[in-house]
Structures are given as structure tokens and as C-alpha cells.
Design a binder for these strands. Structure first.
Length: 637
RNA sequence: GCUGAUGUGGCUCAGGGGUAGAGCAGCGCACUCGUAAUGCGCAGGCCGUGGGUUCAAAUCCCACCAUCAGCUCCA
């Protein structure tokens, strides 16, 4: 019998009989791998374990520990979900059912409206399917046959998908028991491989993600190789929910959103302290980095917005008002105002780059269904800046902004993800200009050696952009920073500078925001720190806890001393037991508690309790003041 | 905007055609206490809003508003 050489991941070369399946190879390597193997990569292609090896090649076998394994595992779980739904609701038509980052989903079209109770039933049915251990069988079929097959069963969505596949595509279907689906694969060997499943939630989802199409019902689920992993994942989700900024925001008295102002957040005194700390820091850094600060009006004449292009490109997101019968708009962006400021003076090429920052309050009409705490609101403050410069300064200046973003995020301890967004459908300007602008951004990213992904067609209407994304507590990511190159506004507003040659020239403009929206950034801060802010940000930095009423006078004196040293301090004067006061300060997540009893009063000391560490012993008042002052100025996390 | 769910004191939630409930928080009194909950008492609600059905609606029906999950869209 002919034999072939198989090169394994660790470089080892083994010989097998031609036609051996990957499953058999896995078993031959080790019993454990034979059991845990899910899919494999054979000569660069991801395939089923049932694939037969017909020539020499490289083989990598994946288990649930590999991303490729997880993906197939979840994808197979989605097929089991679909099969279960078909058993219970035979009229169902199938959309798509891919694996996603923490699980999978499947979209269904059926008269029946799924309820949470249905999820339990479906889950039971899925477990039956798993127990039956149906093998996943792959079959490649000619295009015509596939079309006939799905047309016959009325699977109009599948038919649509097949029609759009390229002419030469290999069309494969997978069958498990009485269920059959159009699918490129690969899949795990059989339904029995799936161990722990859980259906998470129900939601509507448009067919192929377009508002114009019918809304299907989507069921989200997850699955794991072990029950313990599933439990761990569910516990993690629970933990993340406790960090939700909306929950912590009310608990800690930071902000509220009320029916009277959907999407218009109210900041409470403690939330304002947090906000002002962030803004003070921002101002200080921007001064050091050579920015000037301006403030432009919230309401401006219609003609300005017509000139800027917002009237044509952004109208559905804007609010309007009339003053003395004349149309005005509430600004949705700060740029036109900044352009007007720029135009009030003549500029020389020697002045460039001019970095003009603005904490600008903008209003945008967001659709009602998208509002989300502080993360997605209708009125927010952008930490905007417009940088006016010579075309030759573009790359250097973008790199400069990238460094500033990196520095500011590092102070808060954030990790971030970078995206480059290119020309959208609804755009102003020629393809050449867009190309040139996009290249400038790309070049800056590459020179800074920053990893980024490209988001085609997602740029602003006036130019391409680099976006910086931060993650919230349950892994959703939110755009915060953005750098946008703009060749349009300078044209529209006829911006000029006097060059070396004494002639007028056109400057280039960068729009950029780093925190993005102060509101959103604060939402992310709350979740990032789980409400336990570092001392420099904490609304109350020190809580003084007298043990009995006898220490009230000393407490008052102590508070005065701390407050005069710029430390945000409060005293708990209630006649409660010390344990009670500590518990409360702890729940308020106050970084330092100073316990004072007769002993401390006599010695002029304080007993320090740290939020995270508990009792750390006593020290003199000045020692404590020095320590905390240093911690505040260093912005220690 | 779309699909589905939810809306009861400041907060978390129970009740589900016949006089609105609990815990926590708040206030008062007593206790003066050493590192995560002292006890007793008192207040507090147009049951999201507007219509309807009914002798009677927090409860059933309709519309609207808001919130939540997701989709679409976005900082």
C-alpha cells in the first residue's frame, strides 16, 4: 500500500497509508488528541476530521483550545440549534447561523414569535440531538442541484445565498440526522462532540443586515467543551453586569438619565467632580502639547451649515430652531465654528501648525432605539481640536496626535484598538483627494508601527479617519478617539494662509478627538475601574470616620486641614458603629478611610484604611497628607 | 426607526379585578461602640402617561412615552 508523509505542527514527520482520515491520524498521535480533535488544517485549508489524506502535506489538528476549533465547535452548535428549531417549529425558514466571538447565533423566519420559554424547550431539544450523536456529513453538490434542493424545501434565503455565490464556487451541504444546511464548513465530527450549550437571548435582526429587508428572529447561544467553562463564562457575564456604568452611575450618585430628557444626561455633584478632573487633566496636557483653546456657539445660522455641507449630508441627525423667523441649527459638530474662528485673522505659513482645541457641546438626533446610558446620547461634549497646517506637515502632525492619544489613554490604563476608515458612499470630494488623504493616514500609522484594521466605506463624509476603540465591561467596543483628515472644509470655507512666496495658499485641516465624547469616556471609565476610581479621580478621596461623638471636634479639624490641602474629604458624623460607617464608605468605593478614636485624637494621628487593602495602620496627619498628595499628583492607578 | 421584553416609594423587588406590600435607604429616639450592617419607632406611592371595558382597574384591552436586549445607524 502506498504511504504518504504528514508533517505535524511540531515539525515531526510521520508516515501513514494513503487515504487515512485525519481522525485516524489524531488517534495515532495520542488517545487524548483523538478524543479532543475537532477540525484540522491540511495544507493550509481548514477541513473536517473525516477528510482523507491523499498526498504528502502539513497537518495541524485543532481542539477547543484553538480559535479554529472553537469556531467550528460554535458553528456546529448553531446547526444543532437550527435542527432543534426545525423539530419544534416545522414551518421555519433558515437565515444564516455563524459562530461569533463568544458563541453563535442563528436567524429564523417563522410565524411563531419566540418567547424566553421557547428557549428552554429548544435547549432541551438540542440536548436530545447531542445525545443522538448524529455525524456531520459533508457533501459537495453542483450548483443546479443545490438550487433545486433548497427551492423544493422553500428555503428562499438559502436560494438567495447560492445565487450570489461565484459561478465556480464549490457548494457544500452538511447533514446531521434529519437536518440539512447549506454550509462551507468545516464541522466537528458529530453532534455528540458538543458538551455544554446554553441559549442566551432573543433579538430581531434584519436579513443580511439591511433595514430594507425583513426582520428575522435571531437566537443567540454559546457552547463550551466543558460544563465548568460554561459556568465560568456565565459568572463572568454576571460580574460584568455589576460593572455596568448605568448601574454604578446611580449607585454612586454620578449621573442620571430621566424620562424628561432621553439621551440627555444629568451630571450630579459627584459625577461633576469626576468630569472636571478629566477635563482639567485634558487641558493641562493640551497646553503642554501646544494647543490653543476656543469655545464656539451651540446655535448658528442655517447658511453656515449649508456652506459646510452638513445641511446636505447630516440633516437627519440635526436639531433646528428659529430665531426671529430665521432658520438656525444646533451644532452637531464643532468644525464650522472653528473654521470661522480661523478666518477672523490672516495666517502665515510660519504659524503652522495651529492646533485649536474645543470642548464642544454638540447635539445629534439619534434614533430612539440606540440610546445607551452615557455611551450613546443625544447631547455630548467632544474634546475636539482642529489642526490647520501645510500639506507637508500632515504625516508628522498625525503622528503627533497618535502619540498624544497613546499618552492620554496610558494614564487611565486603557488598551485600545485602531481602525482606518475609508471613503463612504455619501461623500464629498474626488477619488484622488480621498486616496491622497487615506494614504497620509496609513503612512502615519505605519511609521508609528501601529496595528490597525481597515474599515472600508466607514469614513466621515468629508474625509477618511483613524478611530481608536476602547472596550466596555461586557466586551462591546466603543469608538472614542478619532483623527480625520479633511480637504473639504478648507475649500468650503475658503481658508487661506500666506506662503513664503507671498501668495495665498490652501491649508489642510485635521479634526481630532481623543476622549471622543466626555460622556462616553466617563461611562467607560466607570466600567473600567468598576466604580473604584484611582485617588486622583475619586469624587470623595477621604472619608473621616469618628468612632464616637467625642472625636467630632478632631474630625472637623482634620477635615479642614485636608480640604485646605486640596483633598476632597467628608466626615461621617452619624452615631453609628464604626463597622457600619466602614461598610458604607466601602460601598461608596472611597479610596481612603481615616478611623479616629480617642487614641488618634490624643496622639494627633489617623488610622488609615485603604479601600482595597483594609487597615494599614496609623500615621501622623502630615505623613498621610504627603502620601495622598503625591498619589494624586502622580495620578497613580 | 425595527423586533421582543419591561415599567409598583430614593434603590432592589413582591402582588395581579374588591382598602397598595417587603427589605435597604431616609427621618426621630435610645445606645457612644476600634475596622463591611445596634435596637425601637415614624414617615414615604395618581402602581410610566392618556383613553377604554367594568358596579369596581396597579391588575384586562388600546394608544403613546421611557427603559432593557439585539438589529440598523454612530462619538
Amino acid at each position: 500500500m502506498e504511504s504518504i508523509k504528514v508533517t505535524l505542527k511540531n515539525g515531526l514527520i510521520k508516515e501513514f497509508t494513503k487515504g487515512t482520515t485525519i481522525q485516524e491520524v489524531a488517534k495515532a498521535i495520542s488517545q487524548r488528541l483523538g478524543k479532543e480533535a475537532l477540525v484540522a488544517k491540511w495544507n493550509g485549508k481548514i477541513v473536517d476530521l473525516s477528510a482523507k489524506l491523499e498526498q504528502d502535506g502539513e497537518l495541524e489538528i485543532y481542539t477547543f483550545d484553538d480559535d479554529e476549533g472553537k469556531e467550528a465547535y460554535r458553528h456546529s452548535s448553531a446547526h444543532i440549534l437550527a435542527q432543534a428549531v426545525q423539530h419544534l417549529f416545522p414551518d421555519v425558514k433558515f437565515g444564516i447561523g455563524p459562530s461569533i466571538s463568544n458563541g453563535y447565533y442563528y436567524d429564523f423566519d417563522t410565524e411563531h414569535v419566540f418567547t424566553p420559554e421557547d428557549l428552554e424547550l429548544i435547549e432541551k431539544e438540542m440536548n436530545k440531538i447531542i445525545k443522538a450523536d448524529y455525524p456531520f456529513e459533508r457533501q459537495e453538490v453542483p450548483r443546479e442541484e443545490a438550487l433545486q434542493l433548497f427551492e423544493k424545501s422553500g428555503e428562499k434565503y438559502k436560494v438567495e445565498l447560492i445565487r450570489e455565490l461565484p459561478k465556480d464556487a464549490i457548494i457544500s451541504i452538511y447533514k446531521q440526522g434529519d437536518f440539512l444546511d447549506l454550509c462551507a464548513g468545516p464541522h466537528v465530527p458529530s453532534t455528540g462532540k458538543i458538551k455544554a450549550i446554553k441559549l442566551m437571548n432573543l433579538a430581531g435582526a434584519y436579513w443580511r443586515g439591511s433595514e430594507k429587508n425583513k426582520m428575522l428572529q435571531r437566537i443567540y447561544g454559546t457552547s463550551f467543551a466543558k460544563k465548568s467553562q460554561l459556568d465560568e463564562y456565565l459568572a463572568k457575564l454576571e460580574e460584568a453586569k455589576k460593572r455596568d456604568h448605568r448601574k454604578l452611575g446611580t449607585q454612586l450618585g454620578l449621573f442620571s438619565i430621566q424620562e424628561e430628557g432621553p439621551g440627555f444626561p444629568f451630571f450630579h455633584p459627584k459625577g461633576m467632580v469626576l468630569r472636571n478632573q478629566v477635563e482639567d487633566f485634558w487641558r493641562e496636557v493640551h497646553r503642554k502639547w501646544g494647543y490653543l483653546e476656543i469655545k464656539t456657539p451651540v446655535i448658528l445660522n442655517r447658511s453656515l451649515w449649508e456652506r459646510s455641507g452638513h445641511w446636505d449630508h447630516y440633516k437627519e441627525n440635526m436639531y433646528f430652531t428659529k430665531i426671529d423667523e430665521i432658520d438656525y441649527a444646533i451644532k452637531p459638530m464643532n468644525c464650522p465654528g472653528a473654521m470661522l474662528v480661523f478666518k477672523t485673522e490672516q495666517h502665515s505659513y510660519r504659524d503652522f501648525p495651529i492646533r485649536m482645541a474645543e470642548m464642544g457641546l454638540v447635539h445629534r438626533h439619534e434614533k430612539s432605539g440606540v440610546l445607551h446610558g452615557l455611551m450613546r446620547v443625544r447631547s455630548f461634549t467632544q474634546d475636539d481640536a482642529h489642526i490647520f497646517m501645510l500639506p507637508s506637515q500632515i504625516t508628522e502632525e498625525i503622528k503627533n496626535v497618535i502619540s498624544l492619544v497613546d499618552y492620554i489613554y496610558s494614564i487611565f490604563g486603557f488598551k485600545y484598538r485602531v481602525e482606518l476608515s475609508t471613503k463612504p458612499e455619501k461623500a464629498m470630494g474626488s477619488d484622488e483627494i480621498w486616496e491622497q488623504a487615506t494614504d497620509a493616514l496609513r503612512q502615519a500609522l505605519e511609521e508609528k508601527e501601529i496595528d490597525y484594521t481597515v474599515n472600508e466605506g466607514d469614513g466621515a463624509f468629508y474625509g477618511p479617519k483613524i478611530d481608536f476603540h476602547l472596550e466596555d465591561s461586557i466586551g462591546r467596543d466603543w469608538q472614542c478617539g478619532t483623527i480625520q483628515l479633511d480637504f473639504q472644509m478648507p475649500e468650503k470655507f475658503d481658508l487661506t494662509y500666506i506662503g513664503e512666496d507671498g501668495q495665498k495658499h490652501r491649508p489642510v485641516v485635521i479634526h481630532r478627538a481623543i476622549l471622543g465624547s466626555i460622556e462616553r469616556f466617563i461611562g467607560i471609565l466607570i466600567e473600567h475601574y468598576a466604580g473604584a476610581f484611582p485617588v486622583w479621580l475619586a469624587p470623595v478621596q477621604v472619608k473621616i470616620l469618628p468612632i464616637t461623638d467625642r472625636q467630632h471636634e478632631y474630625a472637623e479639624e482634620l477635615k479642614k486641614r485636608l480640604v485646605s490641602g486640596g483633598i476632597r474629604s467628608e466626615v461621617d458624623y452619624r452615631s453609628e458603629k464604626i463597622g457600619y460607617k466602614i461598610r458604607e464608605a466601602q460601598l461608596e468605593k472611597i479610596p481612603y478611610m481615616l478611623v479616629i478614636g480617642d487614641k488618634e485624637t490624643e496622639e494627633g494621628k489617623v488610622s488609615i484604611r485603604k479601600r482595597a487593602e483594609g487597615d494599614i495602620g496609623s500615621s501622623t496627619v502630615s505623613e498621610f497628607v504627603n502620601k495622598i498628595t503625591e498619589e494624586i499628583s502622580e495620578k497613580l492607578v
